[in-house]
């Protein structure tokens, strides 16, 4: 995990960023991922425009309409309705908003807290490092979904608390990257020099060290988006995340579960949405890793 970005020597005097961007553009899987992500983001932003119906309003006598390709299906509800008569397509589109929000917020929490803790840990070493790393061990000493369940039980089930819980359990991922990188950079002369001329500790970390581990951090962030969407859906599936009537994909699966004998589409369609969104981030994250993280390359 302690990978740092190596400055590749360039014949031309070009910033390595462009090399990486080229690399990324050539990577078919990464581009496929990017397209999926873009579709997903567009759905999220334009949900109110694209949705044919209100995703929340129940219309009880329209319940369990099958998708349009069934005989009983109508073009009014392309993907059918759930047992409260709500349009599934609209709920899926609005669900993209919820998932995007979850991904950004929970990974954001993990990114900032983790980077900060990692930087402190790696820079000051010794006792502080020990304490922080033991806490990270505690978080890692446990199947993370179970820890998230306990945390949400403590905070109360809601989307907000699910995001916090996921954010907390992702902290070690980021903390470790930054810590390793900081430790490595601290050995180098320029840091000692900066210190000697009296630069502030925090400034050294942010100006000199941080940019060097940005590569792995970006990769981890993208992959973190993917797993955050999955974990949030799992929590909502267990009734611990988004509360009704929020159109959240995991919660939609949970609600459709009791209809498995009667209306398969209520449960199946949101799962496909999750799969695609997560796949998009994973594909892109993989491509990024190849481009930004030469050591991890095959």
């Amino acid at each position: 995990m302690m990978v740092t970005m190596k400055k590749t020597s360039n014949a031309e005097d070009r910033h390595p960023f462009w090399d990486q961007a080229d690399q990324l553009r050539k990577n078919k899987t990464a581009m496929a991922g990017l397209i999926i992500i873009l579709v997903f983001v567009v759905c999220a932003i334009l949900a109110p425009v694209l949705s044919p119906h209100n995703p929340i309003e129940a219309s009880l006598y329209d319940q369990l309409k099958p998708p349009v390709w069934y005989e009983a299906g109508t073009s009014k509800n392309l993907l059918g309705t759930d047992d409260l008569g709500r349009d599934i397509l609209s709920r899926i589109l609005y669900g993209a908003r919820v998932s995007l929000l979850v991904a950004v917020v929970s990974v954001g929490i993990a990114f900032f807290t983790g980077s900060l803790l990692g930087a402190i840990s790696g820079y000051f070493k010794g006792f502080i490092d020990n304490i922080i790393m033991r806490i990270m061990d505690i978080i890692l000493a446990f199947p993370h979904i179970l820890l998230a369940i306990v945390m949400v039980a403590y905070l109360g089930p809601s989307l907000k608390n699910a995001m916090i819980a996921i954010g907390v359990i992702y902290i070690p991922r980021f903390a470790r990257i930054v810590r390793g990188s900081v430790m490595e950079e601290c050995e180098k002369d320029y840091v000692a020099a900066a210190r000697a001329i009296g630069a502030k500790d925090m400034r050294i970390i942010f100006n000199a060290i941080f940019p060097n581990c940005l590569g792995p951090l970006i990769v981890q962030t993208t992959l973190g988006f993917a797993s955050a969407i999955l974990d949030a859906a799992a929590l909502s599936f267990l009734g611990l995340g988004a509360q009704p009537p929020t159109p959240e994909w995991g919660a939609m699966i949970a609600m459709g579960r009791s209809l498995i004998l009667r209306a398969w589409w209520v449960m199946t369609i949101p799962g496909l949405a999750i799969l695609f969104a997560v796949l998009g981030f994973n594909l892109f994250g993989d491509g990024l890793r190849d481009a930004l993280d030469p050591r991890m390359r095959d």
Partner: peptide
Amino acid sequence: MIGALVGVSMPIFWLGLVLMLIFSL
């Protein structure tokens, strides 16, 4: 490799239900 990526992107609670739907029901 695409299969493997789909594998890690799978919400397993959903996969379980879908498998149940297909293979049991």
